[in-house]
């Protein structure tokens, strides 16, 4: 167990010294620039757009980190052979995989937390500079704490995507793993359509296939409650709980698969 934490710590240190901090800087600069530009451009009511932009950016930046750094953490080690030194230490391959996953998860949590702080700072600025009429036209308060629900679910989605990236990186090249992960992410957002597809096709076999894929592929649409929190529409606690539980179960399945593959792998 301790070995997992040591690997996680090293992975975290490496990703933090890699390009991850830049994303946070880019995020902060983008938020500030956007809040300024958008208030100039649109007919008032820029709060909603700032919120949309901020939450979408957290999601996209997180995705980029999860995919590219996530894949790098394992397949780069294999490709550059640094894994040789590590795996000949008293550590098992499952510990290595779990440690890498945990390290990236910590990276993402820290990254998302910093972005959340920057996000709320911009909102705080808007809150203090808003006039009473502007405030009256807002669908939800600027500093609405319920926005954290959306951020927690973004984290849940990223945890799942990271596990997908990790699984692919245990057996394919970094580029292929990145493409596969992004492909699965897209599929995960189209997944909801498979349900409808099932109702329009006549062939029972095709319907069964669509249903099977619906349950098998990661379903990422439920993780997106950004629109709801921006409009202050309540998100059911059961939805959040079940979605996070789904993420946990799916992540566990992916990690077990990653371990199973990595365990028997030859390093040429």
């Amino acid at each position: 167990m301790r070995a997992i934490w040591f690997v996680a710590g090293a992975a975290f240190k490496e990703s933090v010294r890699d390009r991850v901090p830049y994303t946070m800087v880019v995020f902060a600069v983008m938020m500030i620039a956007a809040s300024y530009l958008i208030s100039e451009l649109t007919a008032g009511q820029d709060l909603k757009i700032i919120k949309d932009l901020g939450l979408a950016a957290m999601s996209i930046f997180g995705l980029v980190i999860a995919v590219f750094i996530g894949i790098g953490l394992v397949s780069k080690e294999v490709e550059r052979k640094s894994v040789f030194a590590l795996l000949t230490k008293p550590i098992t391959r499952p510990q290595f995989i779990l440690g890498k996953y945990l390290g990236l998860l910590v990276t993402l949590v820290v990254n998302l937390s910093v972005m959340t702080v920057a996000y709320y700072l911009v909102l705080f600025y808007m809150e203090t500079t808003a006039t009473a009429t502007m405030r009256a036209s807002w669908a939800a308060p600027a500093l609405d704490p319920r926005q954290l629900i959306a951020i927690v679910l973004i984290m849940g989605e990223l945890a799942l995507v990271t596990a997908v990236a990790l699984l692919f990186s245990t057996f394919s090249s970094p580029l292929l793993a990145a493409l596969l992960t992004l492909g699965l992410w897209v599929a995960g957002h189209f997944n909801h359509d498979l349900r409808q597809f099932e109702q329009v096709v006549d062939s029972r076999a095709v319907a069964a296939l669509a249903r099977g894929l619906y349950y098998l592929l990661p379903n990422l649409a439920p993780f997106n409650v950004r629109a709801e929190v921006v409009y202050g529409i309540p998100v059911a606690a059961s939805h959040v709980g079940l979605t996070l539980l789904y993420a946990a179960a799916y992540v566990a399945a992916l990690l077990v698969a990653a371990i199973a593959i990595f365990r028997r792998r030859d390093f040429k």
Binding site: I49, D52, L53, A56, D193, A221
Partner: peptide, 21 residues
């Protein structure tokens, strides 16, 4: 909406800015 992959709000904002401009 389908093509926007969960970023439809951001897409809506973009089109709104386009409409205003």
């Amino acid at each position: 909406k389908r093509v926007s992959l969960g970023f439809q709000n951001l897409m809506a904002d973009t089109y709104w800015i386009r409409a205003v401009v």
